[in-house]
Write a protein that binds this DNA or RNA. Structure first.
Lengths: 352, 352
DNA sequence: ATGAAAGCGCTAACAG
DNA sequence: CTGTTAGCGCTTTCAT
């Protein structure tokens, strides 16, 4: 890209307000009119040449395209969006990009979005309702074409409201209404697998470190359903620190517990830390099973037994489904919203 | 936000092309004119009320603001951007969000950007020159106000060219020109610390697993400068797999090596894997020092000795410096570009 | 303190 | 196949 400076050469460059010579300072915007003039056609023709809409002779198109190159012309998204209402942007709302689960998903989102020509704007919410709706509003105002959301605090009504204003796919959460598309890991199965594994290993007293802030609690419900009544569950933030605190509390109150199921790998790591501080060996004295199968799970000490989900695939699928919603809304084809469930699988390593 | 549904109630909602009742389908856009009409003022007054520009009576302002709430009006960024040339967006270009280093930085970027009212669009490049310039172009076209770039493939000239078109801060790379702002970790010191540590532990034969794709190679140069001539360096992708491959090759060719310095923690993890596969104990047979101090570094097996950098702070600082550039360009104040260097510190754990 | 006019850069309808 | 006419929704002069 970028040969020479901006202003090119051809034609007399009759650009009203130019800074005279080429010593480029304020970088005057090259508009479609400049290109049209330089190529000796109308703006419409330039527009056609760029967008491949309408008929155009191959010859003119080539000439226009060449002129565009020459002038280093870049269409203004603002002006274009004004007509088309399309920004070529997707919003991605998540609670914490620093939680390794999300970058893995984000990678899938970015790749799939790029393939479709979308840019992705990311918003971090820390699972605060206020931040979640602020993010949604921001994205809306910026004219994004669609939103992918890991909402953990907003209620279903808010999501339905958002869905009315913009194509939306909710991630890892039950759809707030049948009309709202969703993609989600199969947490119920994943959790059941984890619990059954612990039970098969002979653990009679289990406990769960829950990290869910939100409304859904699929993992917790599945855990409760699969274990004896009154099996302890302690809730804390889904972080290493949260896991450590939750484990400390749970084992303080229930010393008989020998098997811990954590909401995610981060909490599992925290639990392992806490266990060791209390002089308990993992897995000999207490087994730990995580959730997510983070990249480094196998390299931890001990290697973490965890539930694997394909996070990249989740991201990819999210975009695919969102694209469907975007198109459906565009064509006003009342295509039904998709609801996909991605598989989960247990990975047995040494921690549990 | 969002009490009730979208369309509010007050005023006669004289919206030309509405879908009649509240069963909201196509969601007609509420424009500034709708607000003006409903509030019984002109659009300018509405604009003033929103933007706090120009004089306005507190009374009218309140009334207008109320109407805005009621109608759930959201100004169009497209229309606004067309006049102001501001999108309230920053671009963040990085090679791989799945590498845990970047999310940590990104967190800082998001937080600082949000505090300044900016949205962040993220582009993943895999360190490909083509993708890096494509990302830059995308960001440019979308009218971002500034760009933060971890460029690993683009040449200095391209960066200078980009700098001419948009406020730019380069991250973890020497500024391509004095006029281009930069923020970077002190890799030279960090690397020296790592090498000296290994040497102090009595390792006579070191090796480096380099992961740099780019142009800068600060870590490699610092390593070479601090070690004996002909100390081996093997280059591979900065990933676990890359680190494993590089370690296997390096130790195959130089079995005498007992101390490995890795470009980053991911490569260090790969090295540890490779070492073990070859039956070498870490750190007894071969020490390994990483770089970055990822969140999980302390929980690895063995806990990873590594160079710590404050990634969140890096992200925060990048935004701060970029904001400076944005303002400087706005005021045409020829404020000099900042160049900041963030400290690095060795964290000794068990791997090396 | 408020309103009227003008126009940002582009594309969608129509002409021709 | 190409050009002309409008106008997207907002802010910026300039009047009042």
């Amino acid at each position: 890209m970028d040969e020479g400076t901006a202003m090119g050469n051809g034609a007399d460059g009759a650009n009203g307000a130019n800074g005279a010579d080429g010593s480029a300072a304020g970088t005057v915007r090259v508009t479609i009119d400049d290109v049209a003039r330089a190529a000796g056609v109308s703006r419409q023709t330039v527009s056609r040449a760029m967008n491949g809409k309408g008929e155009i002779s191959a010859a003119t198109r080539r000439r226009v395209l060449a002129t565009i190159e020459e002038l280093d012309y870049r269409p203004s998204m603002f002006a274009r969006g004004m007509r088309t209402h399309r920004a070529g942007t997707l919003g991605l709302i998540l609670s914490d990009i620093a939680n390794p689960f999300f970058p893995a998903v984000a990678r899938g989102v970015f790749d799939a979005a790029a393939a479709l020509g979308f840019s992705v704007v990311v918003h971090n919410t820390d699972a605060h309702a206020g931040r979640e709706s602020a993010a949604a509003r921001e994205i809306l105002e910026r004219g994004a074409e669609g939103v992918i959301g890991f909402f953990e605090a907003l209620g279903d009504e808010e999501l339905v409201g958002l869905h009315r204003r913009v194509p939306l796919v909710v991630a890892d959460r039950r759809a707030p209404a049948p009309g709202v598309a969703s993609v989600s890991s199969d947490f119920a199965t994943g959790t059941r697998l984890a619990v059954e594994h612990l039970q098969a290993r002979g653990h009679r007293h289990l406990g769960m470190l829950d990290g869910a802030v939100g409304v859904d609690h699929v993992r917790r419900h599945a855990f409760t359903a699969a274990t004896a009544p009154r099996t302890p569950v302690v809730t804390a933030p889904p972080t290493i620190t949260g896991g450590a605190a939750a484990a400390a509390q749970l084992l303080g109150e229930h010393p008989e517990v020998t098997g811990l199921f954590a909401f995610n790998d981060l909490m599992a790591v925290g639990a392992i830390r806490a266990l060791r501080e209390r002089g308990r060996r993992v897995p000999d004295d207490c087994a730990v099973v995580g959730y997510d199968d983070l990249t480094l799970a196998a390299d931890l000490d001990p290697p973490l037994t965890t539930v694997h989900t394909d996070k990249y695939e989740l991201g990819r699928t999210l975009v695919e489904v969102l694209d469907g919603v975007v198109r459906a809304r565009r064509d006003e084809s009342g295509a039904a919203a998709e609801h996909r469930l991605l598989p989960a699988a247990l990975v047995v390593r040494r921690s549990g």
